[in-house]
């Protein structure tokens, strides 16, 4: 992994920036504690099905969404708890969704892989690898069609770039000059298959050359670097109406899903240990402390606060009602009157 893209150092940080930076840390902590709690709930059988944790990749969601406006559109893969939380879906609503409860952000009918909040432009976690990438192209198409200056962004893993949906979607976005940002969270493994065992070229961002599309590679463990790269992509989309393929190099500290060991056969324990040394939260809190934005005590206090919030979400999810049986047949089709 490349070194940090931003250089820490004691200097004067203006209070607004400091507040923003603290917010990012808080968001990253929230994801971390939330995912740990989700893992715990999963092992207790309170969460069913598939559950893909975001631990290790927190800086990506925080750094990218920080660049967006509330009216922009977001779609994500099934590893989307982090993006959902950062975008503003409450921990209660996300946890309740994981618990399959009526108070969940998808009414308990979506689950971990299908978190939605249309009011926040959060248009779904999607369960078919790569399948949602064309949707983002379509949203960007709609933006251009209506002539607004929104942008549509899409999160997917590096394993998705080998399927046709990725290629077809990016080709049209470039062909039609659409305001889309394709964020490839390269965590090095598609389930248990290393990138170099699946892709003929290692540098995913190079794929953009096929479409004459702007691209950038950024260190995904450095939230400030992610934010900076995302700012450039958003500007390109919003102002120039051009798409970007943003490759964010990150690492998943946990297994592919809850049914997958942390390392297993496809990567070594040593590799995971090595990567954990660049824990994005540690990197960012270290930077804030170094820059004097927060003290260690501040960070710990923030962490405790976050943990309380997560505990609250957990309790809320536990106590929330199950969907009523009538919900089974609701929303298969639109209501008759439109």
């Amino acid at each position: 992994m490349a070194g940090t893209a931003t250089k820490p150092g004691r200097k004067t940080i203006d209070p607004a920036t400091a507040e923003t930076w603290r917010t990012w840390l808080r968001q990253m902590l929230l994801i971390r504690r939330f995912e740990e709690k989700a893992g715990e709930a999963y092992s207790l059988g309170k969460i069913g099905g598939f559950c893909h944790l975001y631990i290790g990749q927190e800086a990506v969601a925080v750094g990218t969404i920080a660049s967006l406006r509330p009216d922009d559109y977001i779609t994500a893969s099934y590893r989307e708890h982090g993006q959902a939380l950062v975008r503003g879906i409450t921990p209660r609503a996300v946890m309740a969704e994981l618990f399959g409860k009526a108070e969940g952000c998808s009414g308990g009918k979506g689950g971990s892989m299908h978190l939605f909040d249309a009011s926040l432009g959060f248009l779904g976690g999607h369960g078919i690898v790569g399948g949602h990438i064309p949707l983002t192209t379509g949203m960007a198409f709609a933006i251009k069609y209506r002539g607004t200056d929104q942008v549509a962004i899409c999160y997917f893993g590096e394993a998705a770039v080998n399927n046709g949906a990725f290629h077809e979607a990016l080709n049209m976005a470039a062909l039609w000059k659409l305001p889309a940002i394709y964020i490839c969270e390269n965590n090095r493994y598609g389930m248990g298959t290393a990138l170099e065992r699946a892709s003929a070229i290692y540098d995913i961002s190079e794929r953009a050359c096929s479409y004459d599309m702007a691209n950038e590679v950024v260190d995904g463990q450095d939230v400030l670097a992610v934010k900076a790269a995302m700012d450039r992509a958003v500007e390109r989309a919003r102002d120039e109406k051009l798409p970007t393929l943003l490759e964010v190099r990150t690492y998943r500290f946990m297994g592919h899903s809850m049914s997958d060991p942390i390392h297993g056969h496809y990567r070594t324990k040593e590799e995971v240990e090595e990567q954990r040394k660049r824990d994005p939260i540690a990197v960012w809190s270290g930077r804030l402390i170094a820059d004097g934005v927060m003290s260690e005590e501040d960070v710990k206090a923030m962490d405790r606060q976050v943990m309380e919030e997560v505990e609250d979400a957990y309790r809320f999810a536990e106590e929330a009602p199950e969907p009523e049986p009538e919900a089974l047949f609701r929303d298969v089709y639109a209501p008759e009157e439109s």
Binding site: L123, L135, G138
Partner: peptide
């Protein structure tokens, strides 16, 4: 469109999700 059925079907879905009627 290019010959890209999966792609433009997905474009249709995405556009419809945000309010168009493809």
């Amino acid at each position: 469109t290019p010959i890209t059925e999966l792609g433009f079907a997905g474009v249709g879905v995405g556009a419809a999700m945000v309010g168009l009627r493809p």
